[in-house]
Design a protein around this nucleic acid. Structure first.
Lengths: 240, 240
DNA sequence: CGTTTATTTGACGCGGTTCAATCAGTGTGG
DNA sequence: CCACACTGATTGAACCGCGTCAAATAAACG
């Protein structure tokens, strides 16, 4: 009898309870019973640093929610020049909605946990649940805003300002509540090479600018990846 | 009696009949009676080249559809450096949905006709007409794709490739059906200064690269604004 | 036709790339 | 445990593409 009750129970699925996307991500748009229906179609996937999650020009069979880790979206020119065009953190949505095939490559920048849902399942659900499409619309609009900010960085900032802007971006992501006067410390989710591809620079230039920032006392860097910013304000002032 | 019938008539509103947005734009998502309701809230606006349509950091009271002309979206840094972050043509949608205030400046790059709808009217309509939100979602996703393509241009292409890419972009917009082997001719919607801000270059560099392209026989330019491309393939080959 | 603004062209310098060498961290096998 | 290789990051030196500054030319406008 306990079991029979469970079937019609509207409790949050176990796996969703501890999921960030449950509230801040797209699943926040779902009512309890919708969430249960949703969870019936999803599967969890764990990926290692460096795994290619979606290849450029590959068919789109599934979408996903980022539950943990960082994902980089990139594009390459025929001759190999590469540019990052997006960075995704939990609880972002991953995948080009309604696209025939992907126009970017998605790669795990760290260990990553995904909550994967097949394309037809999500699209059906979106069609019947306007709130879900609305939530994804909000995320898409936010991504567009970010892309445009980034375009200013790529087109108009100096190498110094680019690197400062990148550090500031990551710092704010590590601690969204941080005040300008605060100090923060965090791990860089990207290698020098990735940072260069993010900023439209070479690794050498990135490295040189980082040493300048270090010498200026704006940041402290240990083990290549750990960054400490004594006061965000100083960093912000260098962002152009 | 004829008049009474008209009231409940489901004919397309007169002003919408010749509008591009009616089919390709957001209004294509509306059924005839919805279109009538929609049209009750809209007003047509005509703007001159150079008019500021939306200011950075201004409250968003209305959205609009571009019926004619070209609009440039831009951002500026405190010290005046400027970067275009979007170009909009008919029948694109104008305005940051659900945003509190604009994060870009929108300026008419040519004479422009807008179909303006107050913010509450559109948002109510979106809430009750999922197809409308879906259509706008599609446009937003397309804009995001374009922004990311552009990021590659800004971050990784040479001045030569940037200018070629820009000309190619405009050429394809002037004649979307054009084949690579075809030739096309069109008017540039932007000044050299705007093109520079679009590509993250200076006007001098833009000018020099245009002369190079002219000397190479890839384009012919008359009156500073009229461009003729004998074969698109040659131009495309220079886009990197 | 004169004035103003937009574009082109030229000369020069600098910021960032390129090429190359060094250094640091990490794993591997003897 | 150390020598070795390997990968990622830093540093240095030389080069060059693009920006800067300045002047000439062309187009737009009254």
């Amino acid at each position: 009898m306990g079991e029979r009750l469970d079937i019609h129970n509207s409790e949050t699925p176990v796996l969703c309870r501890s999921c960030e996307a449950r509230h801040r991500g797209m699943c926040g748009a779902l009512k309890p019973d919708e969430l249960i229906e949703f969870a019936r179609h999803t599967r969890k996937e764990r990926h290692e640093h460096g795994d290619e999650l979606i290849g450029d020009s590959t068919a789109i069979h599934a979408y996903a929610n980022v539950m943990r880790g960082v994902i980089k979206l990139s594009k390459v020119l025929e001759d190999g020049r590469q540019q990052l065009v997006g960075l995704q953190f939990a609880p972002d949505f991953l995948g080009r909605l309604f696209g025939r095939e992907s126009v970017v490559t998605a790669e795990a920048a760290s260990a990553v946990d995904l909550c994967v849902i097949p394309r037809p399942a999500l699209e059906q659900m979106m069609a019947s649940t306007p709130a879900l499409e609305h939530r994804l619309m909000q995320q898409t609009l936010r991504e567009l805003d970010e892309a445009r900010d980034w375009m200013v960085t790529l087109g108009r900032k100096t190498a110094q300002e680019k690197v400062a802007s990148f550090l500031y971006l990551i710092a704010m992501h590590a601690d969204p509540a941080a005040e300008p006067v605060d100090g923060v410390s965090f791990e860089l989710p990207l290698s020098r090479s990735d940072i260069a591809d993010f900023l439209g620079l070479t690794i050498e230039t990135v490295s040189r600018q980082l040493t300048k920032l270090r010498q200026a006392g704006v940041v402290r860097i240990t083990n290549n990846r750990t960054v400490e910013v004594p006061e965000l304000e100083a960093l912000q002032g260098l962002c152009g």
